[in-house]
């Protein structure tokens, strides 16, 4: 389902809080159709939080989020439903329903949200599971899968409805390099074949090189760099430099910034 918007996602001055802890403080981002946006940043800097705010699982404390032209925070149920029907999300922890088999997990949105006959649904599920290399795992339940298999099954579920926007929170974490490369191929073909917008959180720099059209880098609740990978790499911000560990840079400097990383994940 190709969308006709100029931007599938518009995030304006987003402020996100848990209690009185501000995690995101004025974040801006716009994602076009057929674009892979990679979100980078240290652990705990609010990447998952950003995704949750975009798909309406959390209400912004300030600013505005538009997903496929709809502001989920203020939309009524039918509008919200329509948008969510065109959005897929791969959660960081997979979030497969433990009570259901892998097949049933992937079939769930199709069963509940479309009027398709059962055999068509089964065929679609088989296709999606084949795409992520899990054809043999239909009847297993999530606790019977390895971490990487869970991730792939969750991706199959996120793709079940052929979404216009796909969010993936660390899709290749826990995958071997070969499977990870295959996954990157898959993400790129989703973009080119279906015109999807993809928002991908990842820590794998090799993967960023392959898939990213544009990169947004977060630190301490702010966007510190935005643009193509080359543009972002050229940003003089010390965190960016440490992240990409560019040649000619003293180890000292890198280490000190990385310590800053570890000491305080989010913003106090």
């Amino acid at each position: 389902m190709r969308s006709t918007f100029e931007y599938n996602i518009i995030v304006e001055d987003l402020i996100a809080r848990y209690g009185d802890k501000t995690v995101l403080d004025g974040v801006n981002m716009k994602v076009r159709p057929s674009e892979v946006r990679v979100i980078l940043g240290g652990s705990g800097c609010g990447k998952s939080t950003l995704l949750k705010h975009i798909i309406g699982l959390a209400t912004p404390a300030g600013g505005k989020v538009e997903l496929l032209g709809v502001d989920l925070a203020s939309a009524d149920e039918p509008d919200k439903d329509a948008v969510l029907g065109r959005v897929g999300m791969l959660f960081q922890g997979g979030a497969l329903l433990n009570a259901l088999t892998i097949h049933e997990n992937v079939a769930l949105p199709l069963r509940e949200k479309t009027g398709l006959p059962g055999d068509v649904i089964d065929e679609m599920v088989a296709m999606k599971l084949a795409l992520v290399g899990l054809s043999h795992a239909h009847d297993l339940t999530p606790p019977e899968l390895s971490g990487g298999m869970k991730k792939r099954a969750a991706l199959a579920r996120a793709m079940a409805m052929d979404p216009a926007v796909l969010f993936a929170d660390e899709p290749s974490a826990g995958l071997d390099p070969i499977t990870a490369a295959a996954l990157d191929e898959l993400l790129i073909s989703l973009k080119t074949q279906f015109g999807m917008s993809l928002v991908v959180v990842t820590h794998e720099l090799a993967s960023v090189e392959t898939i990213a059209d544009r990169v947004t880098m977060l630190d301490k609740g702010h966007v510190i760099a935005e643009g193509t990978l080359e543009e972002v790499k050229a940003t003089p911000h010390p965190m960016v430099r440490a992240f990409f560990g560019r040649e000619g840079e003293g180890e000292e400097e890198q280490r000190s910034v990385l310590q800053a990383f570890g000491s305080d994940g989010g913003r106090a």
Binding site: I55, G56, L57, L84, F91, A95, L96, N98, E112, R157
Partner: peptide, 19 residues
Amino acid sequence: EIGTMMISEEIDALKTMGL
């Protein structure tokens, strides 16, 4: 059951599927 689904984000996943 529901508590476990809350902490494993399964409830969030249901919501994003519009369920």
